[in-house]
């Protein structure tokens, strides 16, 4: 049932990425959105604002989750596309290994920055 679990995870991560990405985009554009309503807030993309969010555990969790779910969803989707290119089983195994390694490396790199920032604050 390996493929079934992968496909179910693909669907779940797709939905989660949509929600987390919506939160991210809304926050990044909050000055514009709230500005339309006549509420003035400090720019969410300023250094101070970014650092403030980086020091909040909930935001660190949101960004690491977005990275993890996004990486899984994108790389598993990419593997599904490669499956249709009629590669041999051995070539597909090698590519799958490369995709997993790529995902793990980028997950470690991507989580390092927010965790390091969060740890430095505490």
């Amino acid at each position: 049932m390996k493929n079934t679990y992968l496909q179910l995870a693909q669907m779940v991560t797709g939905a989660l990425v949509a929600v987390l990405l919506a939160i991210h985009i809304t926050v990044q554009q909050s000055d514009v959105v709230l500005g339309l309503l006549g509420i003035k807030v400090a720019g969410p993309t300023t250094w101070g604002s970014m650092m403030e969010r980086a020091h909040q555990g909930s935001w660190v969790g949101i960004y690491i989750s977005l990275l993890a779910f996004g990486l899984f969803h994108a790389l598993n989707g990419f593997r599904n596309i490669l499956l249709e290119t009629n590669l041999s089983a051995s070539a597909m195994r090698i590519l799958t290994g490369c995709i997993i390694a790529f995902g793990v490396i980028f997950l470690i790199l991507g989580t390092y920055a927010p965790i390091a920032l969060f740890s430095s604050y505490r």
């Binding site: 049932m1 390996k2 493929n3 079934t4 992968l6 496909q7 499956l83």
Partner: peptide, 13 residues
């Protein structure tokens, strides 16, 4: 049959 159709190049593709 589920074991067969859930492999690569089958029901999920």
């Amino acid at each position: 049959r589920y074991q067969i159709v859930e492999k690569d190049h089958a029901v999920w593709n």
